[in-house]
Amino acid sequence: MSESPLKNLTFLKSFQFERVLNEDPVTHSLTLLGKLPDSSNPEAFCNAILRIDKTALSSDSVESVWTALDTIKLIEHTDIYGWLFAWLKPSTERPDVKISVVHPATEIHIRKYSKQQILMVKETPQLYNTIVKPYIDAFPTSRLQWVYNILSGKSEAEKVLFRDDDPDYGFVILPDMKWDLTTTTSLYLVAIAISRDIHSVRDLTKGHVPMLRKIQQEAKKIVQERWKLDPGALRFYIHYQPSYCESLLRSAPTRLRTHPILHIIDHFHVHIVNANFIGTMGSTVGQALLFDNVISLLELDPDNTTEGIFQRVTLTYGLGDQHGLYEPMKVAQEGL
């Protein structure tokens, strides 16, 4: 694997800004569209997306942050209350921002990262079979080869925190890209199923309950041993629709330079975050299904059923207007 040009500050500073795709004051993030040199032809430039996030502050770093204060500016003071701006001295141990890069970025990437208007849709089993499933099936499996390399241990093996290689019910657990690997208040892990037959919650049956419970059990054990968090300090959830999986980007073979698929990751995965972390993207109602609730619903099915509850139920969720399913699902709502 060739060395990433992102290790070179000069390369990143060559970014040619074009426009702001999105800004989020809640997550303190800014997403920019521009151009970076083409890796195959340094004289040419191609589209690139930079997402800049302010890193989280941790109670463990209070002293170092306080002693690093360099400059302050009083905003306002009244009675016992005061507000100030402050600037910190540069530090190699305390980064100010985290930058995620998609390069080269396609038009689909640009649409994904642009600010979107959300439409709440109802997906009946019929709409899943006639609209959603064909959309998912249209993605070539080659685009997920980098995921399969992680699952097989061919790449990024050192980042995996737990591995169960059972071909039907195994999984791996690894850190999410959005986590800085130190701030426990923003802890974020992801569990990825080994089986290629589980694409989303729609494919889960009662037979998968032991696998789901083991994911929960092993994740809690890892977090308690490594980061001293109690089991109740974690929130487990599943996306539906399973959105473009930024969480897996950390372990992509080309690191943060490129990503092979957008909008749908056709492979089942579970998000595991600190329950107190309120800034988690994608953890809102209309996209996230609480893991324990999914397990409880699956357990309601009789043992001999051939069609699980998630093949029979209508699911309601939010779709952004840049999503490939937006238009057909919007039209389909008129007939419900």
Results as ranks from 00 to 15, higher is better:
residue 38 D to P: 00
residue 125 P to T: 05
residue 312 R to E: 10
residue 331 V to R: 08
residue 94 R to T: 02
residue 89 K to F: 11
residue 59 S to Q: 09
residue 252 A to H: 14
residue 289 L to A: 00
residue 16 Q to D: 12
residue 321 D to F: 07
residue 227 W to F: 15
residue 16 Q to I: 10
residue 249 L to R: 14
residue 153 G to F: 04
residue 20 V to Y: 06
residue 127 L to V: 11
residue 287 Q to K: 13
residue 127 L to N: 11
residue 147 V to Y: 12
residue 220 K to I: 03
residue 219 A to G: 04
residue 256 L to F: 10
residue 101 V to N: 02
residue 293 N to R: 10
residue 101 V to S: 07
residue 92 T to R: 07
residue 136 I to H: 09
residue 203 D to T: 02
residue 119 L to Y: 11
residue 290 L to D: 08
residue 22 N to Y: 01
residue 313 V to Q: 08
residue 194 I to C: 11
residue 94 R to K: 06
residue 10 T to G: 10
residue 184 T to V: 14
residue 266 D to M: 00
residue 86 A to N: 12
residue 252 A to I: 04
residue 312 R to K: 00
residue 308 G to E: 01
residue 109 H to F: 03
residue 86 A to Y: 08
residue 336 L to G: 12
residue 185 T to M: 09
residue 83 W to G: 11
residue 49 I to C: 01
residue 172 V to D: 11
residue 299 E to G: 06
residue 58 S to T: 01
residue 256 L to R: 09
residue 77 H to V: 09
residue 15 F to Q: 00
residue 83 W to C: 12
residue 277 F to V: 06
residue 81 Y to Q: 13
residue 103 H to S: 09
residue 249 L to I: 14
residue 26 V to G: 08
residue 254 T to K: 03
residue 185 T to Q: 10
residue 265 I to R: 08
residue 158 E to H: 00
residue 206 K to H: 14
residue 279 G to N: 05
residue 200 S to L: 04
residue 12 L to E: 04
residue 11 F to G: 06
residue 63 E to M: 05
residue 56 A to Q: 11
residue 259 H to A: 03
residue 97 V to T: 05
residue 59 S to T: 15
residue 331 V to E: 15
residue 100 S to E: 15
residue 167 P to V: 02
residue 58 S to V: 04
residue 117 Q to N: 10
residue 9 L to D: 13
residue 182 T to H: 12
residue 63 E to L: 06
residue 307 E to W: 07
residue 34 G to Y: 01
residue 3 E to V: 08
residue 299 E to V: 00
residue 300 L to H: 08
residue 131 I to Y: 06
residue 335 G to E: 13
residue 104 P to Q: 07
residue 140 P to M: 06
residue 145 Q to S: 12
residue 41 N to R: 04
residue 10 T to L: 13
residue 124 T to H: 04
